[in-house]
């Protein structure tokens, strides 16, 4: 059983220092690498009276954990100026956005379109599934292998993914490990 959350639930979460207990920023948006199967970082808004876009970014390596109520970092030095951040965090490539992409099985069946990312709660940004708008209508959740091919318009998933389409996050949390075991993944 894994505790999961969607990327939309992360937007607006405070960024809190483990050592200082201070909310130093809040999440504006997530930057995702479908090839790596994880977040590469998050962009930030300022907290409090100075609310508004922050210049600084938070690279995934500096994320201690993404939780249900906060994104944790060790201390304020975890926030990086764009010029000090890895290029894929400082200048995220827009064509890598998977939202709206068609999810196709290797056999050529369309499962639906990507609506949101699903992350492992407590990890540093591991993406384990997608929320999809199902081809037949309605919302669904699919598990992902660690890596997959993405083109910018479609992504290809193993055939067995079709057996693992879930109605909610709880169902997906229970299915992730079995899905990975069936594919022989860790």
């Amino acid at each position: 059983m894994r505790l999961l959350m969607t990327a939309s639930q992360i937007r607006g979460l405070p960024v809190v220092t483990v050592q200082g207990g201070e909310d130093v920023a809040e999440v504006r948006d997530v930057i995702y690498s479908p090839e790596a199967g994880r977040l590469v970082g998050v962009t930030l808004n300022k907290r409090g009276f100075l609310a508004g876009r922050s210049r600084e970014v938070l690279p995934a390596e500096a994320i201690h954990a993404v939780g249900q109520h906060a994104v944790m970092v060790l201390d304020e030095s975890s926030l990086a100026a764009p010029e000090d951040a890895p290029d894929d965090v400082a200048h995220p490539a827009m064509e890598r956005n998977v939202l709206g992409d068609d999810v196709l099985t290797e056999g050529g069946a369309s499962l639906g379109k990507v609506a949101d990312l699903v992350l492992l709660v407590g990890s540093s940004g591991e993406v384990v599934g997608y929320q999809i708008d199902k081809a037949g209508g309605g919302r669904g959740y699919i598990p992902l292998p660690a890596q997959l091919s993405v083109s910018g318009v479609a992504l290809v998933v193993p055939n067995i993914t079709e057996e693992f389409v879930q109605d909610d996050l709880v169902g997906l949390g229970a299915a992730v490990d079995e899905f990975r075991a069936r594919l022989g993944l860790p």
């Binding site: 059983m1 894994r2 505790l3 405070p14 809190v16 220092t17 483990v18 050592q19 200082g20 207990g21 201070e22 909310d23 906060a70 944790m72 407590g122 949390g173």
Partner: peptide, 19 residues
Amino acid sequence: LLGSGSYAAVLDESQEPSP
């Protein structure tokens, strides 16, 4: 206790409720 400030007191992960 790992840290405390104006926003929160941060505790280590052994205090995490098991899912």
